[in-house]
Amino acid sequence: MKVGIMSDSHGLTSEVEKIKERHQAEVDVFIHCGDSELEKADSIMEGLLAVRGNCDYDADYPDYVVETIGDSRFLVTHGHLYNVKMTVMNLSYKAEEEQADIICFGHSHIAGSEMIDGRLYINPGSIRLPRNRKEKTYAILELHQKEATIQFYDDCGNLVKNLRNTYTFN
């Protein structure tokens, strides 16, 4: 099972479409963690499990989504309602409340992943305005039994090697 994760595209359309096309044969589900700045009904957003960010004005987007993908329970949110630029503590409370295994969020534009208390947190970064690195990034998560491998790519599809991680769930 593979999950494509992007966030903070801030009005980009051709870049989002290219990412979807580039990985459509390998990815089972695409997630957008908010701040697309596009209407939910926009054809670019079709097929994306998407949430509302602080720069999204379409009320048709939910603030968060809890979805079972494969054998894992995902919590997808933008992160601004949980103050993720300061800490993931508030988000961790929501993850616990929703019994989520994997938490996907954006807002900070900082790409990364980490396992905290048996839960995997993934921020795919931004494909428009990255912070703390020059690459505009998105991520692909591969789930296989109790193992999760997360790989990050730049907007041209090149692997960002120093962000790759593999995690094991208990």
Rank of each mutant, 00 (worst) to 15 (best):
V160C: 07
K134P: 11
I110W: 00
G4F: 02
L81D: 14
V76P: 06
F74L: 13
C156R: 12
E26D: 07
L91Q: 14
G47V: 06
I116M: 09
K94L: 15
I69T: 04
N158F: 14
Y93H: 12
Q24I: 15
H109D: 01
Q145M: 06
Q151P: 03
K40D: 11
R119M: 13
Y153L: 00
S126I: 07
G4D: 06
D42N: 13
S9M: 03
N83G: 08
G118H: 08
L159I: 09
T87P: 06
N90W: 08
H107K: 05
E46W: 01
S92K: 11
K136S: 00
S14G: 04
K94R: 15
Y82W: 14
L159H: 12
V29F: 08
R133I: 15
L81T: 12
E17V: 13
H78C: 10
H32P: 09
E96R: 10
N162M: 03
A25P: 02
E96H: 10
I69H: 06
G47M: 09
S113L: 00
E97L: 11
E97T: 08
H78Q: 06
L143D: 10
T137G: 05
G79F: 06
T13I: 14
A59E: 15
H10G: 03
T166N: 00
I116Y: 14
N132Y: 07
A100Q: 11
S36Y: 02
K2W: 01
L49E: 05
V3N: 01
E135W: 05
E97K: 11
S92T: 15
V65F: 01
